[in-house]
């Protein structure tokens, strides 16, 4: 039941291709800015960059509708931005400002946004998987009255190759398949869990093969090719809308940067990184668009300029943001009822 995804689907129309490109460029430039802001100590704590993996979010997230749900990882800026969480509130979150999408309390690893049904960055590896199963269970139980406009609501859950070694991976895959729940398992296989290469983590490194053993359709997809990512996601989501149960997509991708800002990258060769950079997802798409006569230098510069403005606006917004008053520290430990401030007793 596992399939290696065919080379690459044909280019879509210009407007659509441009949207895919723009999403990837947005994530790339946003994160480059984050890295810079980290060295200027505007952003603190852990910062995990998605640079190199943009095609996965850009190709898969927009396939979902507004009633679908997304469960992210701690490397989730890309997932959140493409989902439509405003760059302004994501950046403010990273600054720790109260205008952030989680009031600044979570930072980079904990982006939450109810409006876009973005159920968080989760900093416990594998921690989001059972949550996705539960969201899908709820969607299934709500039944037809609460169906999304085009059928069963889907919960897309992102996680890494490393997470696939956790017990929760097995338990969630089994539950989703057993109960036939509409979970789209999106494995971002970047071949490393921190410094541990996949061969050291998995006895069977073909993760789609493992997924198939639970009895769900599983495909291996070129995660550097945004068109392939989109095509595979569409097929999976279509099948799920029609009641097709859980699907597993293994996106083979690569992170160009260190695991986090603390990682001296002792575990991999520069040449390996350089080799992967030759398949930069942004360049891959841009080149194809150029070949197809959809993009020239001016067109590219236009995309860059739009993104630049969006990122600058996000930084301005975050800079202008305010610190949550210390008096509010104990708010939301418990839910706030009418006339009660929800403080811990």
């Amino acid at each position: 039941m596992t399939h290696l995804y065919p080379p690459s689907p044909p280019l879509p129309d210009r407007a659509h291709a441009r949207t895919l490109l723009r999403h990837m460029v947005l994530v790339r430039r946003f994160e480059e800015k984050c890295a810079e802001l980290y060295t200027r100590e505007k952003i603190r704590g852990f910062l995990h960059l998605y640079i190199g993996e943009e095609a996965v979010a850009a190709g898969s997230v927009p396939v979902l509708g507004p009633d679908d749900s997304v469960v992210g990882t701690y490397r989730e800026h890309g997932q959140a931005l493409v989902r439509g969480v405003p760059a302004t509130t994501v950046m403010a979150e990273m600054f720790g400002k109260v205008e952030g999408c989680a009031r600044g309390r979570g930072g980079s690893m904990h982006i939450f946004d109810a409006g876009t049904r973005f159920f968080g960055g989760n900093a416990i590896v594998g921690g989001g998987l059972p949550i996705a199963v539960g969201l899908a269970l709820a969607a299934r139980r709500e039944g037809s009255a609460h169906r999304g406009s085009d059928g069963t609501r889907v919960t897309a859950c992102y996680f890494g190759d490393g997470a696939a070694a956790e017990g929760e991976f097995h338990e969630s895959m089994n539950l989703a398949a057993l109960w036939d729940l509409p979970v789209l398992f999106c494995c971002e296989n970047n071949f490393y869990a921190m410094g541990t290469p996949i061969e050291i983590s998995h006895s069977e490194t073909d993760l789609a093969l493992r997924a198939a053993s639970y009895g769900m359709p599983a495909w291996t997809v070129d995660g550097m090719d945004v068109l392939a990512v989109e095509d595979a996601t569409r097929r999976a989501v279509e099948a799920m809308r029609g009641g097709g149960g859980p699907h597993f997509l293994e996106f083979r991708t690569y992170r160009f940067r260190a695991h986090s800002m603390f990682d001296p990258e002792l575990y991999r060769a520069k040449e390996e990184v350089e080799k992967w950079k030759k398949r930069d997802p942004i360049t891959l798409l841009a080149d194809r668009m150029r070949e197809g006569g959809m993009l020239d230098d001016d067109g590219m510069e236009e995309v860059e300029a739009e993104v630049r403005a969006e990122v600058e606006e996000a930084v301005r917004f975050a800079e202008a943001g305010t610190w949550e008053p210390v008096e509010d520290l104990t708010r939301f430990v418990y839910s706030e009822q009418d006339g009660d401030d929800g403080e811990a007793a």
């Binding site: 704590g45 852990f46 720790g96 309390r105 930072g107 690893m109 904990h110 900093a123």
Partner: peptide, 8 residues
């Protein structure tokens, strides 16, 4: 003490 939020 390292600003890595609740789960860390």
């Amino acid at each position: 003490g390292r600003q890595v939020a609740a789960q860390h």
